[in-house]
Write a protein that binds this DNA or RNA. Structure first.
Lengths: 203, 203, 203, 203
DNA sequence: AATGAATGAGGATTCATTCAT
DNA sequence: CATGAATGAATCCTCATTCAT
């Protein structure tokens, strides 16, 4: 009559711990957050945390995986096959909106992604960069598609342009999520980033 | 009746310590860097460091001040009074070049600014943000000037556009500095950011 | 679902640490004693000490509390209601004996009370003084009782006399405890302090 | 043309340092006082202190020597040769007054003697005890004289009684000096200690 | 499985002392 | 002689991790 926890139960516990950890890490940062803080928030013993995660780093890595997967979904849902500038513009808006949605739902993820991940560890910084690079990579595909469909500038260095565009997108997400913007407050950012991406600053 | 170290000597020591600290912090991050690491790199006793800086945070703050002042200089040297798009474009290039120059000279500063500063402390994150905001603020003035001189889009939200532009600029600086790019490697970034800013992605 | 150490066990550990700390502090004084010394004496890790006491000061404070409570008991058990000089004399002997008993049982407490507490901290010096003052206060009550019952001098300044008497008592306790006196060695002190208190030095 | 400081000048410097040290030690205690505090108070370099005293302990030892010598003088000036109880009483008053005078002139010495000396070091505690013992020793002579002249109790254990009397005297000095008593405030203490010593507490 | 008791590596900081100038 | 720059021993305390119950 040994009692083995069902896989579902284990998964639920892991999730609870992850959720608590996201809150705690977002509040205090990786270094200042203790395993005990996470356990206390859940009302469990801190030793228990180690039954579900190898160590503190492991929890953080899982958070980053979550981030990576959520952000991947955003781009992967929207293949680079638009046929005109207006279509591409709509696609851009969709992607921005979905990305914003992720972080608005859990602003703590924004704090972690944009602040608390850095300075932990070279490996973790790399992981965060990889997320951005994934985004940039996809963006490059969109740009290449636009060029091949002739609605984007042909002499563009898509790799570089993709990074720049991604940087703007991330800046937008960061602002909107960290300042807990309402839809109305988001609107001008949404409009401005699209305009800038499409037509630049000039008249 | 001797022995009061000359102000120059004191300043030099402080500078040496700061330089070593920049290297160490860039390599290992704030938390993983010990005062002893800094002292050892200089071949001095770690107690000596405390004669020049109150504590570890104090050293880090000084690095941030340095960063802030260097970056301030970049924008403050170039007042927002260009009269045409080509002129503004040249100004943009100048600013980008000067900014890049700062970080190419000391790529460690880039690591500190873009990675290691975050996650230390709320106060320090704020300081870094303030640097970016300073930049965005100035950028907004450039944009307003361009609008008033009628060579930039009039319906632009300059505050937002400024932040987006700053984000691109920082992304560029980050890449160029952290990957230790040669002039030749920098060129396409330089070209692309200007194009994107001026005319966007579209044809 | 186990592992919450029973309150008894916790209390025992606290007590063990306190006992070891009393030994160590008595031997080397507060400043020269390290938490590591205490832990080592118990054969436990020094981190463990911090599970039971907030810090070194906290341990010391607890020792002082112990001292205060033990010494309080001595006087509080013996209300100031004797009716004649012989009765009072007997009471004095009882009190002296009980006080001596405390410190003979743990001569280290004498070292702490009479030596090692001073010079730690203004707060701690005050705490030690308060113990003596408590004693003097009670002594004043005894004296007032003696005056009202007309077996002690009526023109006495009881507050001052109480302090002087307390000083003699403490001197006795100090000697007896610190020199680890046998009953036989104590006897002349016992006799002399009583005589002096009752009839002074003169014939 | 070597310049050797005159012995007088050296002595004066030593004295200045000693005076400053007395102030500082009395204020903050031995451990909390830094050599730098002493030097700063004198407006000299802290390295200079080491030209006059071997180390911090050495300065403290000198303070204790000073104390010892001042207190020795008090008793040594007044030989144990009184012939009657009233004469002895007057002698007691003289001694108490002289002792009080020392500490009223420099209340810092009282703080050092009664508080800050303990807990520094076993050796220093011993030195302080030796001062008290010197006093007790002399007191024993007074008592023996009184017994031989038949104005004091013959069955007295003079060594013990001397210690008890000394304890009262020190308690008085401590109170009077540390509370910066005026002559008028001292009077009742003076009166009470004499009464207690002569005739005890009883009617 | 869950727990929390125990552990000790790790690091910042202070300050007495030395000694080159 | 005077100085203060340099030094590093010394010690407190935190907290991630392990593991007996």
């Amino acid at each position: 009559m040994v009692n083995i926890a069902s896989p579902e139960k284990i998964a639920r516990r892991r999730q609870d711990i992850l959720d608590a950890a996201i809150d705690i890490f977002a509040e205090k940062g990786f270094h200042a957050s203790g395993i005990a803080d996470i356990a206390t928030r859940l009302g469990i013993g801190h030793g228990t945390v180690y039954r579900y995660y190898k160590n503190k780093r492991d929890i953080f890595n899982e958070i980053l995986s979550l981030l990576l997967s959520e952000m991947s979904t955003v781009v992967q849902q929207d293949p680079p096959n638009t046929n005109s500038l207006p279509e591409y513009q709509q696609q851009l808006e969709r992607i921005a909106d979905r990305l914003i949605a992720i972080f608005r739902e859990r602003p703590q993820l924004a704090r972690i992604a944009f602040y608390e991940s850095y300075g932990v560890d070279a490996e973790i910084s790399d992981a965060v960069n990889r997320i951005q690079e994934l985004f940039a990579e996809f963006t490059a595909y969109y740009l290449q598609n636009g060029i091949s469909k002739a609605f984007l500038r042909s002499e563009m260095d898509t790799a570089i342009a993709a990074r720049l565009v991604t940087a703007m997108l991330m800046e937008t997400v960061k602002h909107v999520a960290l300042n807990d913007f309402s839809d109305k407050q988001i609107e001008p950012w949404r409009r401005e980033i699209i305009r800038l991406m499409i037509g630049g600053l000039s008249r």
